[in-house]
């Protein structure tokens, strides 16, 4: 009898196209005579909405960060070239590009909407080896964000501490600072969320560690 249930719930010829689904997904109340009677299309709209504006749990944030890093390393077309293999041609072309760039000051201005469009947040500090235990995390603001969620993770990428901030910085409490044992490798990342808790930006994982007496 599962076959009956399958037939009841599977798409029919009158079900909506992707373009029609996206139109309704963009509306607060997706009113459509067919959708109101169709479990399949209702489900598709719900899934599309969740894909476009996901609400992450904390555990998902850490997982997504790791998967993103893996995707970045093995993207479909880009490969990082070893310097000893490509240094010659790279240097020539770099000189051309930098020269052109420097001659055109206008091109250096970054449009304000860049940050809004991008889901990538620039992490600013701390990073790398630190001579003192950091007391503050700072990052690039995301215009659409109402608040930010910060996580510090260990080598297993499991969250050790998390905090929230409405601004683009967060003062670390003592319990977070206590995690930063000398030489311990840690990472932190920040997610930007809008007023409804939807993800509007996410940073990469920023590595750092406390190395008393010296910094890189």
């Amino acid at each position: 009898m599962n076959e009956i249930l399958r037939q009841i719930t599977e798409p029919g010829p009158e079900c909506l196209s992707p373009a029609q689904l996206e139109r309704l997904a963009g509306q607060a109340e997706g009113r459509d005579p067919h959708v109101e009677q169709c479990a399949h299309c209702t489900t598709e709209i719900a899934l599309l909405r969740e894909f476009l504006a996901p609400k992450l749990t904390f555990a998902e944030t850490a997982a997504v960060s790791q998967i993103e890093r893996r995707l970045g390393k093995g993207g479909p077309s880009v490969r990082r070239v070893n310097w000893y293999r490509g240094a010659g041609v790279a240097a020539i072309a770099a000189a051309i590009a930098v020269g052109v760039w420097l001659q055109n000051p206008a091109s250096r201005a970054v449009p304000a909407e860049d940050v809004v469009r991008s889901v990538s947040i620039g992490s600013i500090a701390p990073a790398g080896d630190l001579a003192v235990v950091p007391r503050l995390l700072r990052w690039d603001a995301v215009v659409a964000a109402s608040h930010y969620r910060v996580a510090i993770v260990g080598v297993d990428r499991e969250p050790l501490w998390q905090g929230e901030s409405v601004g683009a910085e967060l003062v670390l409490p003592a319990e977070a600072q206590a995690l930063m044992a000398p030489g311990r490798n840690l990472w932190w990342r920040v997610s930007a969320l809008d007023g409804e808790g939807r993800l509007v930006g996410v940073s990469g994982a920023q590595a750092f560690r406390y190395v008393p007496g010296g910094s890189r």
């Binding site: 894909f51 476009l52 996901p54 992450l56 998902e60 997982a63 997504v64 998967i67 993103e68 995707l71 970045g72 993207g75 479909p76 077309s77 880009v78 469009r117 991008s118 889901v119 990538s120 993800l199 996410v202």
Partner: peptide, 19 residues
């Protein structure tokens, strides 16, 4: 251009696939 395009969706696709 394609790289920039795909990069924008890394987190969304990663989350979808993780779920």
């Amino acid at each position: 251009f394609a790289e920039e395009l795909f990069r924008r969706y890394y987190s969304r696709v990663a989350l979808w696939c993780f779920r």
